[in-house]
Computed example of a mutant assay.
Amino acid sequence: MGEGASGRPVNAEAGKALKAAALQLVRANGYDNVSIAAIAKAAGVARQTLYNRWATKADLILEAVFEETHNYAAEPDFDTDKDCRTLLETFLVNVFNHLEIDGDTLRALIAAAQHDSGFQASFHAGFVKPRERMITALLVRAQDTGELPSSRNPETISTLIHGAFWYRLLNRGALNPAFAREIVSNIFD
Protein backbone atom coordinates (compact mmCIF):
# COMPACT_ATOMS: atom_id res chain seq x y z
CA MET A 1 0.00 0.00 0.00
CA GLY A 2 1.30 3.48 -0.84
CA GLU A 3 1.99 6.21 1.66
CA GLY A 4 0.76 9.76 1.69
CA ALA A 5 2.88 12.85 2.25
CA SER A 6 2.80 12.31 6.03
CA GLY A 7 4.16 8.75 5.77
CA ARG A 8 0.85 7.16 6.75
CA PRO A 9 -0.74 4.53 4.51
CA VAL A 10 -3.04 5.95 1.85
CA ASN A 11 -6.67 4.90 2.27
CA ALA A 12 -7.86 3.96 -1.22
CA GLU A 13 -11.51 4.23 -0.18
CA ALA A 14 -11.00 7.83 0.94
CA GLY A 15 -9.49 8.65 -2.46
CA LYS A 16 -12.45 7.10 -4.28
CA ALA A 17 -14.90 8.93 -2.04
CA LEU A 18 -13.14 12.25 -2.64
CA LYS A 19 -13.15 11.83 -6.42
CA ALA A 20 -16.81 10.79 -6.46
CA ALA A 21 -17.83 13.69 -4.20
CA ALA A 22 -15.80 16.17 -6.24
CA LEU A 23 -17.40 15.11 -9.53
CA GLN A 24 -20.90 15.08 -8.06
CA LEU A 25 -20.52 18.55 -6.53
CA VAL A 26 -18.85 20.12 -9.55
CA ARG A 27 -21.47 18.69 -11.91
CA ALA A 28 -24.29 19.98 -9.69
CA ASN A 29 -22.88 23.36 -8.69
CA GLY A 30 -20.12 24.30 -11.14
CA TYR A 31 -16.38 24.21 -10.57
CA ASP A 32 -16.06 27.72 -9.14
CA ASN A 33 -18.87 27.12 -6.65
CA VAL A 34 -17.30 24.08 -5.00
CA SER A 35 -14.76 24.38 -2.21
CA ILE A 36 -12.22 21.91 -0.90
CA ALA A 37 -14.12 21.95 2.41
CA ALA A 38 -17.37 20.98 0.67
CA ILE A 39 -15.68 18.12 -1.19
CA ALA A 40 -14.06 16.79 2.00
CA LYS A 41 -17.36 17.07 3.90
CA ALA A 42 -19.32 15.28 1.15
CA ALA A 43 -16.69 12.51 1.08
CA GLY A 44 -16.74 12.20 4.86
CA VAL A 45 -13.02 12.83 5.28
CA ALA A 46 -10.81 15.56 6.69
CA ARG A 47 -9.44 18.24 4.38
CA GLN A 48 -5.93 17.07 5.20
CA THR A 49 -6.81 13.67 3.73
CA LEU A 50 -7.52 15.44 0.45
CA TYR A 51 -4.32 17.49 0.62
CA ASN A 52 -2.30 14.33 1.34
CA ARG A 53 -3.25 13.18 -2.18
CA TRP A 54 -3.75 16.32 -4.28
CA ALA A 55 -2.13 19.75 -4.07
CA THR A 56 -5.19 21.61 -5.38
CA LYS A 57 -8.86 21.24 -6.14
CA ALA A 58 -7.97 21.33 -9.83
CA ASP A 59 -5.61 18.36 -9.42
CA LEU A 60 -8.34 16.34 -7.69
CA ILE A 61 -10.97 17.20 -10.30
CA LEU A 62 -8.54 16.45 -13.13
CA GLU A 63 -7.85 12.97 -11.79
CA ALA A 64 -11.55 12.31 -11.25
CA VAL A 65 -12.44 13.46 -14.78
CA PHE A 66 -9.55 11.52 -16.29
CA GLU A 67 -10.73 8.30 -14.61
CA GLU A 68 -14.29 9.01 -15.70
CA THR A 69 -13.09 9.52 -19.27
CA HIS A 70 -11.84 5.92 -19.30
CA ASN A 71 -15.40 4.77 -18.59
CA TYR A 72 -16.47 6.43 -21.84
CA ALA A 73 -13.47 6.47 -24.12
CA ALA A 74 -10.78 4.04 -23.17
CA GLU A 75 -7.97 3.33 -25.60
CA PRO A 76 -9.30 1.83 -28.84
CA ASP A 77 -9.10 -1.97 -28.97
CA PHE A 78 -6.74 -2.98 -31.75
CA ASP A 79 -7.53 -6.67 -31.18
CA THR A 80 -10.68 -6.42 -33.24
CA ASP A 81 -11.68 -6.89 -36.83
CA LYS A 82 -13.07 -3.34 -37.02
CA ASP A 83 -11.34 -0.95 -39.39
CA CYS A 84 -9.56 2.13 -38.07
CA ARG A 85 -12.20 4.45 -39.48
CA THR A 86 -14.84 2.73 -37.33
CA LEU A 87 -12.55 2.67 -34.29
CA LEU A 88 -11.86 6.41 -34.59
CA GLU A 89 -15.51 7.31 -35.08
CA THR A 90 -16.54 5.19 -32.09
CA PHE A 91 -13.78 6.72 -29.97
CA LEU A 92 -14.83 10.27 -30.87
CA VAL A 93 -18.52 9.55 -30.27
CA ASN A 94 -17.62 8.19 -26.84
CA VAL A 95 -15.47 11.24 -26.05
CA PHE A 96 -18.31 13.52 -27.12
CA ASN A 97 -20.79 11.56 -24.98
CA HIS A 98 -18.53 12.12 -21.98
CA LEU A 99 -18.29 15.82 -22.77
CA GLU A 100 -22.09 16.02 -22.59
CA ILE A 101 -21.66 15.21 -18.90
CA ASP A 102 -18.33 16.81 -17.99
CA GLY A 103 -17.90 19.52 -20.63
CA ASP A 104 -18.44 22.35 -18.14
CA THR A 105 -15.96 20.74 -15.74
CA LEU A 106 -13.38 20.36 -18.48
CA ARG A 107 -13.84 23.99 -19.57
CA ALA A 108 -13.24 25.03 -15.93
CA LEU A 109 -10.08 22.92 -15.78
CA ILE A 110 -8.83 24.53 -18.99
CA ALA A 111 -9.45 27.95 -17.42
CA ALA A 112 -7.61 26.89 -14.25
CA ALA A 113 -4.68 25.75 -16.37
CA GLN A 114 -4.39 29.25 -17.82
CA HIS A 115 -3.74 30.68 -14.35
CA ASP A 116 -1.47 28.02 -12.89
CA SER A 117 1.53 26.82 -14.90
CA GLY A 118 2.06 23.84 -12.61
CA PHE A 119 -1.50 22.68 -13.11
CA GLN A 120 -1.23 23.40 -16.84
CA ALA A 121 1.69 20.97 -17.01
CA SER A 122 -0.31 18.37 -15.05
CA PHE A 123 -3.36 18.89 -17.25
CA HIS A 124 -1.34 18.50 -20.42
CA ALA A 125 0.61 15.46 -19.21
CA GLY A 126 -2.29 13.77 -17.44
CA PHE A 127 -5.20 14.46 -19.76
CA VAL A 128 -4.28 15.96 -23.12
CA LYS A 129 -1.19 13.90 -24.01
CA PRO A 130 -2.72 10.47 -23.31
CA ARG A 131 -5.66 11.29 -25.61
CA GLU A 132 -3.29 12.54 -28.32
CA ARG A 133 -1.22 9.34 -28.05
CA MET A 134 -4.33 7.18 -28.41
CA ILE A 135 -5.51 8.91 -31.57
CA THR A 136 -2.01 9.07 -33.04
CA ALA A 137 -1.53 5.33 -32.42
CA LEU A 138 -4.84 4.63 -34.14
CA LEU A 139 -3.79 6.72 -37.14
CA VAL A 140 -0.41 4.94 -37.32
CA ARG A 141 -2.30 1.66 -37.34
CA ALA A 142 -4.49 3.02 -40.16
CA GLN A 143 -1.33 3.64 -42.15
CA ASP A 144 -0.05 0.15 -41.35
CA THR A 145 -3.30 -1.39 -42.63
CA GLY A 146 -3.37 0.82 -45.72
CA GLU A 147 -6.47 2.75 -44.65
CA LEU A 148 -4.52 6.00 -44.48
CA PRO A 149 -1.83 6.99 -47.00
CA SER A 150 1.72 6.82 -45.69
CA SER A 151 2.25 10.41 -46.91
CA ARG A 152 -0.09 11.71 -44.16
CA ASN A 153 1.43 12.69 -40.80
CA PRO A 154 -0.49 10.96 -37.95
CA GLU A 155 0.68 13.50 -35.34
CA THR A 156 -0.51 16.43 -37.44
CA ILE A 157 -3.86 14.75 -38.09
CA SER A 158 -4.22 14.01 -34.36
CA THR A 159 -3.55 17.69 -33.62
CA LEU A 160 -6.19 18.72 -36.15
CA ILE A 161 -8.73 16.33 -34.62
CA HIS A 162 -8.07 17.66 -31.14
CA GLY A 163 -8.13 21.23 -32.38
CA ALA A 164 -11.57 20.68 -33.88
CA PHE A 165 -13.16 19.26 -30.79
CA TRP A 166 -11.37 21.52 -28.26
CA TYR A 167 -12.53 24.51 -30.33
CA ARG A 168 -16.11 23.28 -30.30
CA LEU A 169 -15.89 22.43 -26.59
CA LEU A 170 -14.61 25.88 -25.66
CA ASN A 171 -17.19 27.62 -27.85
CA ARG A 172 -20.04 25.34 -26.75
CA GLY A 173 -20.52 24.03 -30.28
CA ALA A 174 -22.19 20.76 -31.13
CA LEU A 175 -20.16 17.69 -30.18
CA ASN A 176 -22.29 14.84 -31.44
CA PRO A 177 -22.08 11.70 -33.59
CA ALA A 178 -22.61 13.75 -36.77
CA PHE A 179 -19.53 15.84 -35.97
CA ALA A 180 -17.54 12.66 -35.22
CA ARG A 181 -18.53 11.26 -38.64
CA GLU A 182 -17.59 14.56 -40.31
CA ILE A 183 -14.13 14.52 -38.72
CA VAL A 184 -13.57 10.89 -39.73
CA SER A 185 -14.79 11.51 -43.29
CA ASN A 186 -12.32 14.37 -43.68
CA ILE A 187 -9.48 12.08 -42.62
CA PHE A 188 -10.32 8.88 -44.48
CA ASP A 189 -12.17 10.07 -47.61
Rank of each mutant, 00 (worst) to 15 (best):
N29H: 09
L169P: 02
P149S: 14
E68K: 09
A137T: 11
E100S: 07
P76N: 09
A42W: 00
Q143S: 06
A74D: 12
I187M: 10
G146C: 12
A55G: 11
I39Q: 00
A22V: 04
H162T: 05
A113Q: 03
R107D: 12
V34K: 03
G30M: 01
L170H: 09
C84N: 14
G146D: 12
A64C: 05
E100H: 13
A113V: 02
L50K: 02
A142Y: 06
N11D: 15
V95N: 01
K41R: 12
T86P: 07
T145C: 13
A137G: 12
A142K: 08
R168C: 07
T90I: 07
L148A: 12
W166Y: 15
C84M: 14
Q24C: 02
L87F: 14
G173Q: 13
I39D: 01
L160Y: 09
L87S: 11
A112L: 05
I161V: 15
Y31A: 03
K19F: 05
A121S: 06
I61Q: 00
T136N: 06
E3D: 11
L175S: 03
L148M: 15
L106C: 06
K129C: 06
D144K: 12
A73T: 11
A142Q: 08
A43Q: 04
N153H: 15
R85T: 08
I135G: 00
H98R: 14
V10M: 14
E182C: 01
I187D: 05
K16I: 13
N33P: 02
G173V: 10
G15L: 06
F119C: 08
D104V: 02
A28W: 03
P130I: 01
A58W: 00
G44P: 08
G103C: 07
P149M: 09
H124P: 01
L87Y: 13
D104C: 02
Y51H: 15
V95P: 00
P9Q: 13
A12G: 06
I101E: 12
H98T: 04
L60F: 02
Q48W: 04
K16Y: 14
N11Q: 14
R168G: 08
E147N: 11
